[in-house]
Amino acid sequence: MRHANREEHLHAHDGWTTVAVGTYRDGKSVYFHGEDYLRQEVTDYESEAEAVADFQRQHSVAVRPGPAPLTDSERAAAEVLTTPLSTGPAPTPAQSVALSQPAPEMVPGYATDPGDHEALLVDFFSRHEEWEKWRPHDETTVASHESLTLRVEFLHEALHGDDAWTIAAYESPVGERLWHATATPTTPVEIMRVLLDSLSTEDSCGQGNHTPVKEEDLAEASRPLDGAGWPLKVGARLIDWTAPTPDSAAGLRFDTLVKQGSVLLAWTVWGGNTADSPTWAIRLSPHARTALIQDITFELAHGHGHRQARSVATAPRLQTQASVASPPVSAPRTAPRH
Rank of each mutant, 00 (worst) to 15 (best):
N273C: 06
H160Q: 08
V30P: 03
D116K: 05
Q58K: 14
T297A: 10
T82F: 00
A76R: 05
L318G: 07
R289A: 15
V269Y: 11
L218H: 06
V234P: 00
L99F: 09
Q207K: 00
R333G: 01
S200F: 00
V269C: 12
G206F: 02
D36E: 11
F32M: 09
L238S: 03
S172T: 11
A313D: 12
R64H: 09
I293F: 08
G261Q: 11
V63M: 12
G22L: 06
K259G: 09
P114V: 04
S323E: 14
V63Q: 11
I296F: 10
N209D: 10
L225V: 06
T268F: 04
Q294N: 11
S326W: 02
E215H: 09
I293K: 07
P332W: 05
V52I: 15
D295T: 00
R289K: 09
T186M: 07
D54S: 14
A20V: 03
A164G: 05
L99M: 13
A243I: 09
T279K: 15
E299M: 08
A168P: 04
L81R: 07
P102R: 12
L85E: 13
V194W: 02
Y37A: 14
N273H: 15
E130F: 02
P188E: 01
T92N: 03
I191N: 05
E46P: 03
L265I: 01
V63T: 06
H128P: 01
G88M: 07
Q95V: 04
E41Y: 10
A90S: 06
S96V: 04
R289I: 04
W241D: 10
D203F: 04
T256W: 02
H156G: 06
G229F: 13
P114E: 04
L196T: 03
P93Q: 08
D217L: 02
H287K: 14
W131A: 13
S323P: 12
Y170I: 00
E220S: 03
E299D: 09
V213N: 02
Y24V: 03
V263A: 15
R75I: 00
D116S: 12
W280S: 09
I282V: 15
